[in-house]
């Protein structure tokens, strides 16, 4: 099993690598298109600001590569948001894999949403063995709107898509690598897709 974590300079990818290590897998960090193309599973992480992250993707040609991948790809947090049509953060155009826009939470709630919230309406093999209303850890100011590609829903002032799927592409807004044993179950499910 060759798991590749796309390393394009955005955020805390060590935690994801360690999470796989705890599951007994050695995940490789790479921004090399050949290495990414030949992976069995690809993780597309991201923490930070959308427009600068997209700039980093573009400078290594990964914005072209990622939408063409055929193996299971899991976007995490900003990675998931960048797979959407667009995001309000820095008015950034996304990779347009998921047909949904990313918007900012309004100020009726604290922004960023920081902490543990539940996921419901689970609709994918990604959540095998994961109970409805399980708690996942999230830190974010922007969210993907509920849409037909939603495979999990979370409520924070409104219902938003906390996970998305289209064909071989998966995205989660929360951090499975930081979400205790349930998060690890989701990563395990992704590996066995």
């Amino acid at each position: 099993m060759k798991i590749v974590i796309i390393d394009y300079g955005a955020g805390n990818i060590k935690s994801i690598q360690f999470a796989f290590k705890r599951l007994g897998y050695n995940a490789i960090l790479s921004n090399n298109p050949e290495v990414i193309k030949t992976a069995d599973k690809v993780i597309f992480p991201g923490v930070g600001e959308a427009s600068s992250a997209m700039q980093m993707l573009k400078s290594s040609g990964l914005d072209i590569l990622i939408p063409t991948l055929k193996q299971p790809v899991l976007g995490i947090c900003l990675g998931m948001q960048l797979m959407c049509k667009s995001t309000e953060e820095g008015n950034t155009k996304g990779l347009n894999i998921f047909n949904v826009k990313v918007k900012r939470f309004n100020n009726t709630v604290k922004v960023p949403q920081m902490g543990w919230n539940t996921i419901t309406d689970l609709k994918s093999k990604l959540f095998k063995g994961v109970k409805n209303q399980s708690f996942m850890y999230s830190v974010h100011s922007f969210y993907a709107e509920s849409c037909i590609e939603s495979i999990a829903t979370t409520t924070y002032s409104l219902n938003y898509a906390s996970a998305l799927q289209k064909a071989n592409f998966y995205g989660v807004q929360f951090h499975p690598e930081k979400s205790s044993s349930i998060g690890e179950q989701i990563l395990k499910n992704f590996i066995t897709l």
């Binding site: 060590k14 935690s15 360690f18 999470a19 290590k21 705890r22 850890y137 830190v139 951090h175 690598e177 930081k178 979400s179 205790s180 044993s181 998060g183 690890e184």
Partner: peptide
């Protein structure tokens, strides 16, 4: 920090 990140699954 490296060791905590390796062994602990919460933020």
């Amino acid at each position: 920090v490296l060791k905590v990140a390796e062994h602990v699954n919460i933020p």
